[in-house]
Structure formats: C-alpha cells, structure tokens
Simulated assay, not measured.
Amino acid sequence: MIIARLRYWSDANVLLRAAEALIWINEARPGMPGDGDDVQALIQVNAQPQTMVKMDPSGHSEEAIMRIVVTTDGSKASEAASRYVARLASDLAKLPQVLLVYVDEPLLQRVAVELGVKGVDRYHQENGKAVMKGAKSRLKRAGINYEEHLLIGDPAEALLKFVKKSNCDVLVMGSHGRSALKSLFLGSVTIKVLSRSEVPVVVVR
C-alpha cells in the first residue's frame, strides 16, 4: 500500500503508478476537497506510468529533476520505501536527486559522558553505516545518485526540520519504524510527519 499526503489536487499527477491511496490530513487547501482541519479524505486511485513534472504558478508544466527525501531506519517498511524510489526512477524522464536520511536517536546523557565526544560520534556513524547499507545498495543498482544524511535527534522533529531546508519535492518513508507496533495502521513518527509536513509525503507499507 502506498499512502500520500498531498498539498494540492494537481500533485496527484506526479505520483508513481504504484500509488493506491491519497490521504489529506489537516487544513483544506486550494484545489482539494474538504473544508477544515478535521478533514481526512481518503480517495482510491489507479495511477498510470507517466513523466514526472512540476507545475509552475501559472499552471504550465515543465520537466524537472525531482528531489526526493527517502528515510530509512532498517525496518522492513523503510526498506520498502527505498525500493519504491528505485522503481520510481525508471518511470521518470530524468533520474531524481535522492537524499537518503537516517535519524539516530541521542544516547542517554550518562552513556554519552562515558563514551566521550569521539565515542559518541563513532557510535552514531557506525549505526548510520549499518542502517543505510541496504538502501544505498538498492539506489546504486537503480543507477541513482544520492546524498547520505545522518541526523541525530528526535526522529520526527529532525526529519521535519531537514525536509523543510532540503527544498525537496516529496518525502518517501515507511509506514512503521523498527519500534512501532505492527498492529497500528501507522507508526507514531509517520503520523507526526504526515500531520506537519509542508511537502507531499508518500508512505510505503
């Protein structure tokens, strides 16, 4: 299942054929159904393969290189997210620019003190290397150039801050992280990001 939070109805035109459902959360925006913060509209779609385009303010489209932020944490859902991006590349007129992101949570203060600055840095670098290995391999096989970004902090907050500064077109993430209960429809981090992201979000299960 692919779930996307969109800013405008026209954003549906830039989703990959694998998209099965669109979810609007929070405020209604121009061109979208709904009339307030309580709107949560679920619309089933069958998207066909198409060239990825951007719409300029005048409504004209132009081919552009898409900037995609894809998150990973080693979970099955996040691995599915990187596979989704690898498939997406084959349907685009131009290969996307991908920013691969992993957010490592901070160590407890007492542990950080014991390890020291260099030890803490080494700990996070090793975690990042291990977690991003699978996604990196997948993107390389698809011929996609990517940037690695290791962030430290609260997963949702750090990711939202990064996305805001990245000037990306879309965020792709897994529905559940490693610690999320599988019985939940979406993990807590995903829900926070969906409700606050200022860019379209594609959630992959």
Results as ranks from 00 to 15, higher is better:
Tyr146Asn: 10
Leu107Ile: 09
Ser90His: 14
Gln50Lys: 15
Ala93Pro: 08
Met55Gln: 10
Met55Cys: 11
Glu105Ser: 02
Ser82Asn: 13
Gln97Lys: 10
Tyr102Leu: 03
Gly143Thr: 15
Arg110His: 00
Lys133Leu: 12
Ala142Asp: 10
Ser90Tyr: 08
Leu115Ser: 09
Ala77Cys: 11
Ile144Tyr: 11
Met132Asn: 02
Glu63Asp: 10
Lys129Glu: 13
Val111Trp: 00
Ala135Gln: 04
Ser61Asp: 09
Asp56Val: 15
Ser78Thr: 12
Ala64Met: 11
Glu148Ile: 07
Asn46Pro: 01
Tyr146Ser: 10
Val69Phe: 05
Tyr146Arg: 07
Ala77Ile: 01
Ala80Val: 05
Tyr84Gly: 11
Lys76Phe: 08
Asp56Trp: 05
Thr51Lys: 12
Ala80Gly: 09
Thr51Ile: 14
Gln50Thr: 13
Glu126Val: 06
Asn46Ile: 08
Ser137Ile: 07
Thr71Ser: 07
Val53Gly: 06
Leu107Asp: 03
Leu100Ser: 06
His124Gln: 01
Ser75Tyr: 02
Ser75Cys: 07
Arg110Gly: 00
Glu147Gln: 08
Ile144Val: 14
Leu95Tyr: 02
Thr51Asn: 13
Pro106Tyr: 01
Val113Trp: 00
Arg67Met: 10
Lys54Phe: 06
Arg83Thr: 12
Arg110Asp: 00
Val111Phe: 00
Lys76Ala: 12
Glu148Arg: 09
Ser137Val: 12
Tyr102His: 08
Asn145Val: 09
Met52Arg: 10
Met132Trp: 01
Glu147Tyr: 00
Tyr123Glu: 08
Pro57Asp: 07
Ser75Thr: 05
Tyr123Asn: 07
Val69His: 04
Leu108His: 04
Ala130Trp: 01
Ala135Tyr: 01
Leu108Gly: 04
Val113Phe: 00
Ala130Ile: 09
Glu114His: 08
Arg83Ser: 13
Val98Glu: 02
Ser75Val: 08
Asn46Trp: 00
Ser137Asn: 15
His60Asn: 15
Tyr146Thr: 10
Pro96Met: 13
Ala112Gly: 13
Glu114Asn: 05
Met55His: 12
Met52Val: 12
Met132Leu: 11
Asn145Pro: 08
Lys76Asp: 10
Pro106Met: 02
Val98Thr: 09
Thr72Arg: 05
Leu95Phe: 03
Arg122Ala: 15
Tyr123Met: 08
Leu115Tyr: 03
Ala64Leu: 08
Glu126Tyr: 01
Val120Tyr: 02
Ala135Ser: 14
Ala77Pro: 02
Ser75Gln: 03
Ala130Ser: 13
Arg141Ser: 15
Ile144Trp: 11
Asp91Asn: 09
Arg110Gln: 01
Arg141Phe: 11
Met55Ile: 13
Pro49Thr: 08
Arg110Cys: 00
Lys54Val: 13
Asp73Ile: 11
Arg67Glu: 05
Glu147Ile: 11
Val113Ser: 02
Val53Asp: 09
Arg83Pro: 07
Leu115Cys: 04
Val101Glu: 00
Arg138Gln: 15
Val131Arg: 11
Ile65Tyr: 04
Gln50Asn: 14
Ile65Cys: 06
